[in-house]
Design a protein around this nucleic acid. Structure first.
Length: 567
RNA sequence: GCGCCGUUAGCUCAGCUGGAUAGAGUGACUGGCUACGAACCAGUAGGUCGCAGGUUCGAAUCCUGCACGGCGCACCA
């Protein structure tokens, strides 16, 4: 049930009807009515919904906003069963006050729909693919990857709840230079462990995890690679190392609650000739040229600042060429919308990627790139420099250990992708019990405890009837306290909230909603006792609590945070 | 030099397709547990929305310029 959407539509229709009646008798100039907003005002004294059409029409109609508003009110239908009161306020707002109890049916709907409450078919099953994290498998996942993982997964949840068909994908960069360096680094550590004198490769990965991986290989395979040709040895190191790293990455993400539908290998594009195929297509479209022995994409032809190399003079295709082939492959697989989540340091790549998609005949707007500002890691006032190459970074696993999965996910999802985050480890640790996530979880646990108690036979004889009656049939008209009404109103918002988050690709709306809802519940809980002697009132409040429990749980689930029954 | 993101309460951040008195968390202060979970509630204090212009009934929100911070501008990925 999406009561908010329904009432907005009713208001829209009635406003347009009143408008047309006024036009007919010439009080307002005829013409296409402008788009106007129907919003819930911030201040609840301004009614349930406010309409701004009078101000928007003012100029064209040549009348003052309040005069127009009055005309609309004069022509407004009388005796609408949902409308209690219609007022003109401020500069010319039309404030709608709904019949008390208008949103009450939402409560029974929440209980009936349960897990599905909040979901909708808004997206119409449009096939959306989200690619996120896609960290190089040459190391472990760090804070930036953690943010991307939390964001991408929640966005996937939100889109899915809004009726899109979502596929999550991880692009494995298992080809190219860095993989060579990875192999060289492993080889060096492997030889080192066997007591050989080595010179560590200049561009090598110095992290301890590389040594760990080398150790694992040594334990498993012994020294049988000691005396073989270096290129063979490296090849093996790469294979074994990749396998090891990928399973570690996968394990970390699973622990973080992130599951992928597809793990896609860059190397597979090379193996299947997909890159060559894509280059050929670009060539057929006359978008390639040769210069200095390399094959260039004429990116300037579709508005980019400069041309880009596709195939190096050495004959090896660039990463960019592979990425174009990869995104082409996504479209070929039937996805209608592609969403990539990238670190802000890749923003220069966006325009040419979209341009390339356009050049291949796809709609560039069907590729959306969400740029995520980078995470700066602090310990108190001290900036922790992070570099994968030097091995100086806090891993996702360490983060989960220090801060906890729920807190970490809530924290990351809470912030918009646009904000650059300072993540103070000391603060995160010291504030771990002050984290808003516990505030929301507490509300959930509290309700669970309340409902559990309500199901038990009551202590003492003062309350008649026991507590075993179901509350699903409760008389909702008993819910009239302001705290109850506000809470109900918030519960009614969920479907629209999810749809809006999906449209804007902004999962960070959800933690806000969850905090607001939890606050309203806590407030209700303090002001309204549930386990009262008045049995109908008791049942109604229990139903309201139960509905809140369901909504809290559903939202936490979208964020990727657990909804504990006790804590 | 060019481009992208940011600048809002002491701190961390929402609010940005223009709307009414700019919000939350945290920190500070004051109250509230002999009744369902005080990891809670109620209240107080705290703001030139980076600066300067412009657009209009109305600007934190849109436009222009500037300042400061972050990140890019490879035959790296």
């Amino acid at each position: 049930m999406n009561r908010v959407k329904e009432i907005k539509e009713l208001i829209r229709q009635e406003v347009l009807a009143a408008l047309s009646r006024a036009e007919k008798i010439g009080q307002l100039p005829a013409g296409e009515p402008p788009a106007f907003a129907i919003d819930a005002p911030r201040d609840k004294n301004h009614g349930d919904f406010a309409v701004n059409i009078a101000m928007i029409m003012a100029k064209a109609a040549g009348k003052a906003p309040r005069v127009i508003a009055q005309i609309i009110v004069d022509h407004f239908a009388k005796e609408l069963d949902w409308l209690d009161k219609l007022e003109i306020a401020g500069p010319g707002f039309l404030n709608f006050y709904l019949t008390p109890g208008y949103f009450h049916p939402v409560l029974t709907a929440v209980l009936a729909e349960d897990q599905a409450y909040g979901s909708s078919d808004f997206g119409g099953g449009r096939k959306v693919q989200i690619e996120f994290v896609s960290a190089n498998p040459t190391g472990l996942l760090h804070m930036g990857n953690a943010r991307g993982a939390a964001l991408g997964d929640s966005l996937g949840n939100v889109l899915s709840a809004a009726g899109f068909s979502v596929s999550r994908e991880y692009y494995i960069n298992d080809a190219g230079n860095q993989i060579e360096n990875f192999g060289k680094s492993l080889e060096a550590r492997y030889l080192e462990l066997l007591g050989e004198k080595i010179v560590f490769p200049e561009d090598g990965y110095q992290g301890e995890d590389i040594t760990e991986t080398a150790k694992l290989i040594l334990e498993r395979e012994g020294d049988r690679f000691l005396h073989i040709e270096s290129s063979l040895r490296r090849e093996f190191m790469i294979q074994a190392g990749l396998q090891e790293k990928l399973s570690a990455i996968r394990r970390s993400l699973e622990n973080f609650g992130v599951h992928y539908d597809v793990w896609f290998s860059e190397q597979s594009l090379h193996d299947k000739g997909k890159i060559q195929e894509t280059v050929n297509i670009l060539g057929e479209k006359n978008l390639l040229c040769e210069k200095d022995g390399a094959l260039w994409l004429k990116a300037t032809a579709f508005g980019d600042e400069k041309d880009e190399v596709m195939v190096r003079a050495s004959g090896v295709p660039t990463y960019f060429a592979g990425d174009i082939a990869y995104h082409r492959d996504k479209f070929e697989r039937g996805f209608q919308t592609l969403i990539d989540i990238w670190g802000a340091d890749h923003h220069g790549h966006v325009a040419r990627m979209k341009g390339a998609m356009g050049a291949l005949g796809y709609n560039p707007d069907d590729l959306e790139v969400i740029l995520m500002q980078l995470v700066r890691l602090l310990r108190g006032d001290e900036l922790v420099r992070m570099s994968k190459r030097s091995g100086q970074y806090i891993t996702l696993d360490e983060l989960m250990e220090e801060v906890g999965r729920d807190a970490a996910r809530f924290f990351f999802v809470m912030r918009s992708a646009d904000s650059q985050m300072d993540f103070d480890l000391n603060l995160a640790k010291s504030q771990s019990s002050e984290n808003p996530v516990y505030y929301v979880q507490y509300a959930h646990a509290r309700i669970h405890s309340l409902l559990k108690m309500a199901k038990e036979p009551l202590l003492g004889d003062s309350l008649e009837g026991g507590g075993n009656q179901p509350w699903s049939q409760a008389d909702l008209s008993r819910l009239i306290h302001p705290a109850e009404l506000e809470l109900i109103r918030k519960l009614a918002d969920l479907p629209e909230e999810i749809i809006q988050a999906a449209i804007d690709r902004e999962p960070h709306r959800l933690p806000r909603y969850a905090m607001d809802l939890a606050a309203l519940y806590h407030s209700f809980y303090t002001e309204c006792r549930c386990l009262v002697e008045d049995m109908p009132l008791r049942q109604a409040r229990l139903l309201l609590s139960d509905a809140t429990r369901i909504v809290l749980r559903n939202v936490l689930q979208l964020i990727g945070v657990s909804a504990p029954e006790r804590m």
